[in-house]
Amino acid sequence: MTSTRTLVRRAALAATAVTATLALAACGGDDGGSGSGTAAGKPTSPTAGTGAHNDQDVAFAQGMITHHRQALEMSESAAGRASSAKVEDLAARIERAQGPEIEKMSGWLKTWGEEVPSATPGADHSGGHTGGGSGGSGGTGHSGMAGMMDAEDMTRLMKASGKDFDTLFLTLMIEHHEGAVEMATTEKAKGAYGPATELADAVITGQTAEIREMNKLLGKSNG
């Protein structure tokens, strides 16, 4: 009897130990899954790696690089031509803001294995500066891009000076900024890459404020 009771007791203890071990293992598995956000050892964060982008992000970066380069060309022309210190200051701020943005977007494209538009400011304005109704939806091609100046506009700007330059620069840059805002709005709606949609939001905020500023410099009360 004593021997039988001992065997039964040992079997019960062994079963309890196995149950406890399995319970702890299951608990540990649950903690790892919910706490680290990983599956099979791979991060599930949307920012992990470089693949969290879509065609719209590529189009936005390629189009906005070209768009920004023309804005830089226009802004650089203010030195020695503008008569207003406020216009010169605005042009300098545009240069400081958009130069680094070009570098940032170029970095994305290189990481994605996509083509970075060639640095040829003013070389492609064949689409006209009105931009068309759908210019902001792609940015995939440079002609017809929203807000881009054509060769005639750029020539007039480069030949102008004094108050005539101030007026023409502000008028053209307002249109240029409006095109950029249109492109950025499309990126916010259709883009997938977080840093790109964040940049688009910054473009909308910053350039909308500059449009209001330029309208005031032109004497317009409504921006």
Rank of each mutant, 00 (worst) to 15 (best):
A200K: 04
Y193P: 05
A79S: 14
T197R: 14
E103F: 04
S75K: 07
L22M: 15
R156F: 04
A160P: 11
A189I: 03
P195W: 05
E152G: 06
N54D: 11
W112L: 00
T44L: 11
G147P: 07
A14M: 08
M145V: 04
S83C: 06
P121G: 02
E76F: 08
H53Q: 06
E76Y: 11
N222K: 00
T140W: 12
D30Y: 12
D124M: 10
H125Y: 11
E213Y: 03
E152C: 01
A17L: 14
L217G: 07
I211N: 05
S106A: 14
P117Y: 03
A40V: 09
E198C: 02
T4R: 02
D166S: 12
L218M: 08
M214H: 05
N215M: 05
E187R: 07
G179C: 05
R5P: 07
S84Q: 12
S84V: 06
I102R: 10
S77G: 04
A20S: 15
R10K: 14
G33Q: 14
Q98I: 01
M183T: 04
R156W: 07
W108Y: 14
M154G: 06
A119Y: 02
A146N: 09
T171A: 04
V8H: 13
D31S: 08
V87K: 01
R9Y: 09
A85S: 14
E101F: 04
